[in-house]
Amino acid sequence: MTGHGSIVLIEQNCTSCMICARECPSWCITIDSHTETVVDQPAGARARTENVLDRFAIDWSLCMFCGICVDECPFDALEWATPQALPARTLTALTHEIPDLSAH
């Protein structure tokens, strides 16, 4: 069984929809994204844009490991993982960015 030691981000599933960040009771998820125009559209189609994720960070010093973000993500982009989020010597080191949050 997967433990509840940390949360991993499956980056390619994330649509930057912000639902996890808004539902997080501790407000410890930070997301930055921008929109890009979709280029390979069929001729005559209306222009479309899509979100591109720039930053996804979880502040483990604030996280209460409730799993609400994992449950609420409509795109299965967040998952529990067994390895424990490790102690750090500074508070800033407890904010983990996309590379730290990606499954190993």
Partner: peptide
């Protein structure tokens, strides 16, 4: 952290050597 009565981390009071995540 958003409560008026709660200190937003003990580092505001004293130097801290290790922060252990978890709730």
């Amino acid at each position: 952290w958003d409560s008026y009565a709660v200190t937003k981390g003990v580092e505001q009071l004293v130097e801290v050597d290790v922060f252990v995540p978890g709730c």
